[in-house]
Amino acid sequence: MKANNGKQLRQFILEKVPTVTWILIVMMIYFSASNSNFLTFANAANLCRQGAILLILCLGVIVVKITGGIELSNGAVMSLCGMVLAWVMVNMNMPPYLAIIISMLVGILFGTLNGIFVTFMGIPSFVATLGTQGIAVGLALGMNNGNVIGGLPEKFSIIGNDNFLNIPIPLWAIILVFILTSVLLNKTPFGVYVYALGGNEEALKLSGKPAWLYKVLAYSYSGLTAGIAACILTSRNMAAQPTVGLGMEFEAFAGAVLGGSYIAGKGTAMGGVLGGIFILILRNGLNILGIPTYLQLAIFGTVLITAIVLSTLVERRVQKMRDEEREE
């Protein structure tokens, strides 16, 4: 009986606790032992402010990833949203709240375009989002002749630099987007159909459900998160830079994969956050240890592949335990 209980406990842990969690714990122990500055409140607060952008992007990407798609445009879309946000405030004297709404609508528009290209035109998501990435970068560079837009209203800095109840406002933004993503995936028909799209899209179509609509909405949601991230980043820097988001799409995609969405139909909001935190802690720890940039890239790639391999092995182990349970 005890052996059976132990087996059930192992299966429960393997199923419910993402593999990245264990690697995170090991990393935190190692970096804390290597440098006393790692596990400090100041470093944690800095991580919250800097990491908000990546975590929010991860939460958008993981929704697309669950459907079986690949989102590579959100970094560029975030840059464009930030440029639009700053431009309308500086050149049109638009109040910050209205500028934020317009910026988010731009993000949603580009996300919806991605969804339309993938769903109605049959363009592979990798190609479609790479194309919209180029469009977004071009528009962002053209808005101010490739220059930074500064001189934003002083009160706009509150979003990226102030605290509420002694907690950085960017951290509150992460919490709100995390709750929204969790509710959408777990408590609404949208979530049911998003998982169905990744699991068996043809079956969903045969059931008479508008599969195209939920796929488009998934990409639109990723665009929305790019708009939210742009608001935080622009506020934090008090300026908009047309190429600031380039490269972040790969980190966000890696975070989604590390969080458990390495195959279609799998992934959770918590997994997306954990994957993003993994990247943030790895990058932060390597910087504190003074590891050169070129070595950081090699280490990051090695750890990413290792984490995916471990996740795959764990998934196989869990499936084997389920099969043995059925046979008994």
Rank of each mutant, 00 (worst) to 15 (best):
V26P: 14
T234R: 07
Y219Q: 07
P210K: 05
V194W: 02
L184T: 02
L72I: 10
G260S: 13
I102S: 08
I158Q: 07
F126D: 08
T293E: 11
F190C: 07
G199K: 09
A3N: 05
L206K: 12
Y219H: 12
L297V: 15
N43Q: 14
I66S: 10
G208V: 01
M270H: 00
T306D: 07
P189N: 05
G271I: 08
T312Y: 00
G255W: 06
Q241M: 15
M238Q: 13
G150P: 01
F110T: 03
I291E: 05
G301C: 12
G138E: 11
I305E: 08
E15H: 04
M270C: 09
A240I: 11
Y221H: 12
I135F: 13
C81T: 00
G247V: 13
G275Y: 11
V88Q: 00
L282G: 11
T112Q: 04
G301R: 12
K266G: 04
I101K: 00
I66Y: 04
L9G: 08
A203Q: 09
T132G: 13
Y221D: 08
A256W: 02
F38I: 13
F12M: 08
G160Q: 12
L152Q: 12
S73A: 07
I305Y: 10
F164K: 01
I159Y: 06
G75D: 09
L224S: 02
K215E: 12
N4A: 14
G285E: 03
L184N: 00
L80D: 09
K215V: 06
L85K: 00
F278T: 15
K205I: 06
F156N: 10
W87T: 00
N237Y: 01
G227Y: 07
I23W: 11
G259C: 05
E327V: 06
K320A: 11
A252K: 12
S79I: 04
T181V: 05
P153H: 12
